[in-house]
Design a protein around this nucleic acid. Structure first.
Lengths: 197, 197
DNA sequence: TCTTTTATATGATGAGCATCATATAAAGCA
DNA sequence: TGCTTTATATGATGCTCATCATATAAAAGA
C-alpha cells in the first residue's frame, strides 16, 4: 500500500530489534517467525519481504546485538580513567541485574552455547564480535599498564562470560550470586581494580 | 518378549548413554526421541517404556554426564600431588581435544547455555553438578595453600567454562586456539601452576 | 506344548515450524 | 477520480516433533 518512503526500513528495524531481544532470551531456535512477527505487530507472511530466511534474520540480529553492546561499552568508558571504566564494566557485567536481563544483555553470554549449532553466517559475525570485545578489554588493561594485555583481555572475557553463564544456569539463587561475586572479586584482585570500585 | 532379567536395565542404560552424548553435542532440543532411539538400535515407540517423558530423560542424562565427569576428575588426581593434578585437569580442560569433543566433554560447558530454558528437574541436577565441581577445584587449590580457595574455585571454573565455550563458539580456528591458550596461561600464572606442567 | 508376561514395534495424532503463492489495501501519481 | 505499485495479510504445504494406543513376538513357567 505504498506507505511513506522509510516505512519499510522502519519495519525492518522493528523486526530486528524484537529479534535481537528474543534470540538472546530464548535462543535462535526458541523463537519462531510467526511469534516474532506478532511481537513486532505484524503477521508472519510479511517476514519474507524483509529477510531471505530465518537464518538471514538471525545473522543480522547478531550484528544488531553487538552494536548495542558497543554503545554500552563506549558509554561506560566515556568520562572516566581506563581503570575506573573497566571497573564499572566489570561491575555491570557481573551484576544480578545483567544476569536477570538476558534479552538485553551481552550477546556473547547469551549465545555462546548456541553458536556451535548455528549456520556459518551468524557464527562468523559472532566471532568478529568476540574478537572485538576481547580487544577492547585488552586495550583498557594496557592503558593502565597491565602486562600481556592481549592475553589478559581474552582471559578476562572468558571469566566474565563463564561466570554470567553459570550464574544464569544454576537453579539455586544463593549459588548464583556467589558465582558472580567470586568472579568479580577474583578479577578485581588480579587486575588491581579493587580500589577503583 | 520376556528377555532375561537385566535386559530392560541394559537397554535403559544404552539409551541414557546415547542421550548423554547427543544432548551435549546437539543440545536438549537438538535431538529427537525417534533419532535417539534409532541411535540406540531401537524404535521410537518403545521409549516411553523406559522414561516418563523426554524431559525426564534429559534430567537423567544430565546425571549420567556428571557421573562421567566425576570419574574423569578422580582419575586425574589419583596418583599426583594436588598441584600436579590440578595442572593436569586444566591442561585437559583447555585442550583443543576437549574443545572438539563436545559430546564427550564437560557437561557444564556443553549445557550452560541451554540451562536457562530447561525444565526445573534438569536445572536442579545441573546446579548440583556445578556446585560439586567448583567444590573439587576449591579443595584442590586449598590443598596446596591457595588463599580464599572457595572463591578461587568458583572463579577458576568460570574461566575454564567461559574459555571452552568461547573457543567452541568462534568461527576462526586461530582465535579459538588463542582463547584456550590465553585462559591456560592466565590460570597457571595466577595459581602457581606453571612449573607443574 | 501351551499360556502368560512384557520389552519392543507400528502407526496415528495433533501441534509447531519455515516457507511461499496469492490476495488485499492504501499511498502516490496521472 | 482512477490506475499502479508495493508493504503487509491470508491461507496452505510439507516437514519434524513428542506422545500414545495398540500390536507383536519371544522367554519363562505350567
Amino acid at each position: 500500500m505504498r506507505y511513506d518512503a522509510e516505512h519499510r526500513e522502519r519495519t525492518r528495524a522493528t523486526i530486528l530489534k524484537e529479534a535481537a531481544g528474543a534470540i538472546r532470551a530464548k535462543g535462535p531456535d526458541g523463537i519462531g517467525v510467526a511469534a516474532l512477527m506478532k511481537q513486532a505487530g505484524l503477521t508472519h507472511g510479511g517476514f519474507y519481504a524483509h529477510f531471505k530466511s530465518k537464518d538471514d534474520l538471525v545473522a543480522e540480529a547478531i550484528g544488531v546485538m553487538f552494536e548495542e553492546a558497543r554503545n554500552r561499552f563506549d558509554r561506560s568508558r566515556a568520562d572516566a580513567d581506563p581503570r575506573q571504566a573497566l571497573s564499572d564494566y566489570v561491575g555491570f557485567y557481573l551484576s544480578p541485574m545483567h544476569r536477570d536481563a538476558r534479552g538485553k544483555g551481552c550477546p556473547v553470554a547469551a549465545l555462546s552455547g548456541d553458536m556451535a549449532r548455528l549456520e556459518p553466517q551468524g557464527r562468523e559475525r559472532f566471532g568478529r564480535g568476540v574478537a572485538t570485545l576481547a580487544g577492547w578489554l585488552g586495550k583498557a588493561l594496557e592503558a593502565y599498564g597491565v602486562p600481556d594485555a592481549e592475553t589478559a583481555g581474552r582471559s578476562m572475557l572468558a571469566e566474565l562470560v563463564g561466570a554470567l553463564l553459570l550464574s544464569r544456569a544454576v537453579a539455586d539463587p544463593g549459588e548464583s550470586d556467589a558465582i558472580l561475586a567470586s568472579a568479580a572479586a577474583s578479577i578485581r584482585a588480579r587486575y588491581c581494580l579493587e580500589e577503583a570500585q
